[in-house]
Design a protein around this nucleic acid. Structure first.
Length: 428
RNA sequence: GGAGGGAUGGCAGAGUGGUUGAAUGCGGUGGUCUUGAAAACCACUGAGGUCGCAAGGUCUCCGGGGGUUCGAAUCCCUCUCCCUCCGCCA
């Protein structure tokens, strides 16, 4: 959610920005509702004030035993009460409508975000490493994994349908090794506190994280108990401190969580259907920061740096790109993606997104009501939150398989993972 | 799943229809006293909306929502959450 005051004071700027973002939102309706709301509020408050003071008089009169005067006063108050009731009803509708519409307004990109209509206008910031030199034709991960019998696609599909799979034997070990190494690195080297959150949340949490109401179609939902299944740990992490007020010195807070991620992938039917790149259930280690507003952009660099560090230690070539306005999405004010380079289906090399690091500024903080106080007695302010993948174990497993493959189809295990696999050096 | 009991300010805990946005205690902040500290004493100490340049005014909020009433923390309905007992259970 963005500040209603900001929309009110900069309507044209907001509208222009929406064009850059390639997102539509009912700004004029919002302005109209906002104005109606304030007009009504004024009337209703005036009437309430009258009633409050008028009702006190009744109490006074009763105590003094002046029954008739009290009754006359009661009648006047009844009339005012009726009037208030009418206005209240309208006001309630307007406020509900206004809030609902505000929930569809995206965040405003920060100064300096490249302007462009789509992902082709993202800007490469830096690049690290090179694709390994293969003196043979590299295979895609689904062939490697099937031949090594470490991923069973057919039986995953048998159990749960398309876009499901199962890890088997050393495939499952490798996956688990990645998760544990991501977590340990985050905790021991990057200074995070680990959280094990719920994977099913109520609607309020989804709205707080800005995944609802707009992205309803991409999420699994249990109709019987009203639970939403998280598509990322960002959802529970962003709601932990809802309706709480921090002292400034308690910030920043850096959390890391490993969770499954459930995604319907409705919008990408037919894309990336082979392998485990785009699936309904995967696991991810997610970084999440709560910061003072003035520190959030430093933290964005920290988060992306942490994601890069993981790629470097795994020996995976990558690039960092800054996302342009048209590709920025709903919640981010600024976003970096980290993409690793893998041989891909045809062996020529392709970029695969493995981390998305966003500063959402106060966008989630407003929705989830996350605040801090600069000093005792100061007015509470919204804090800033950031999120970044660190990293998705399934996609990194793809990268490890494809980049560390040998001519005989075996996989050399990256050194950092070997302690997590009983010292094993190769999968064959 | 069944039965019962709860939800009040940072915390604890009063308050069952009329100056109660809320006693009291603890905590916190400032001050007095003290060489300093402690103790004692005094004062202050919730959030949001709206109007206003401001000072300040005004409205709302006692788990959420709705209702009764001139007036609700107090009465009614409903939802959520917590606790206790029974049942089931990794």
């Amino acid at each position: 959610m963005i500040d209603l005051n900001f929309i009110r004071q900069n309507p044209d700027k907001v509208k222009t920005t929406l064009l850059d973002l390639n997102i539509t939102a009912p700004i004029d309706e919002i302005l109209d509702l906002d104005q109606k709301r304030r007009e009504l509020l004024k009337k209703v408050e005036e009437l309430r004030r009258e009633r409050n003071s008028g009702s006190k008089v009744i109490g006074q009169l009763m105590r003094e035993g002046k029954k008739e005067e009290a009754n006359a006063q009661k009648q006047r108050m009844t009339d005012i009460g009726e009037e208030i009731k009418g206005y209240d009803e309208t006001l309630r509708q307007i406020e509900a409508d206004l809030t609902d519409k505000q929930l569809y307004v995206p965040n405003m990109p920060t100064e300096g975000v490249p302007v462009g209509p789509d992902e082709h206008h993202n800007v490469e910031i830096r690049r690290w490493g090179d694709l390994p030199k293969f003196d043979f034709a590299p295979q895609p991960h689904w062939d490697l994994a099937t031949n090594l019998d470490i991923i069973d696609f057919e039986r995953g599909v048998k159990i749960s349908g398309s876009r499901f799979y199962l890890f088997k034997g050393l495939g499952a070990s490798l996956h688990r090794a990645l998760v544990n190494w991501f977590l340990d690195t985050a905790i021991n080297e990057h200074g995070y506190t680990e959280i094990y959150p719920p994977f099913m949340v109520r609607e309020k949490a989804m709205v707080g994280a800005a995944h609802l109401p707009k992205f309803r179609d991409n999420m699994y939902y249990d109709t019987e108990d009203d639970y939403w299944f998280i598509g990322t740990a960002e959802v529970p992490l962003s709601n932990i401190f809802g309706d709480e007020i921090f002292d400034a010195e308690q910030l920043p807070i850096k959390y890391v969580a490993h969770t499954p991620c459930f995604r319907r992938e409705k919008m990408s039917a037919g894309r990336d259907v082979r392998g485990i790149k785009r699936v309904h259930q995967f696991e991810k280690v997610e970084m999440y920061h709560y910061t003072l507003p003035e520190d959030s952009y430093d933290h964005l660099e920290m988060i992306v740096g942490n994601a890069e560090n993981l790629c470097k230690k795994l020996g995976l070539p990558y690039r960092v790109i800054e996302i342009c306005t048209g590709d920025l999405g709903f919640a981010a004010a600024k976003k970096y993606d980290v993409e690793v380079l893998v041989p891909g289906e045809n062996g020529e090399g392709e970029w695969m997104e493995v981390s998305s690091c966003s500063n959402v500024e106060a966008f989630q903080a407003r929705r989830a009501n996350l605040k801090f106080r600069r000093e005792r007695g100061a007015k509470p302010e919204y804090l800033h939150t950031l999120n970044g993948s660190g990293l998705p174990s399934g996609r990194i497993l793809i990268a490890v398989l494809e980049n560390y493959q040998q001519a005989d189809g075996s996989i050399v295990i990256p050194e950092v993972l070997r302690p997590y696999m009983g010292g094993r050096e190769i999968i064959k």
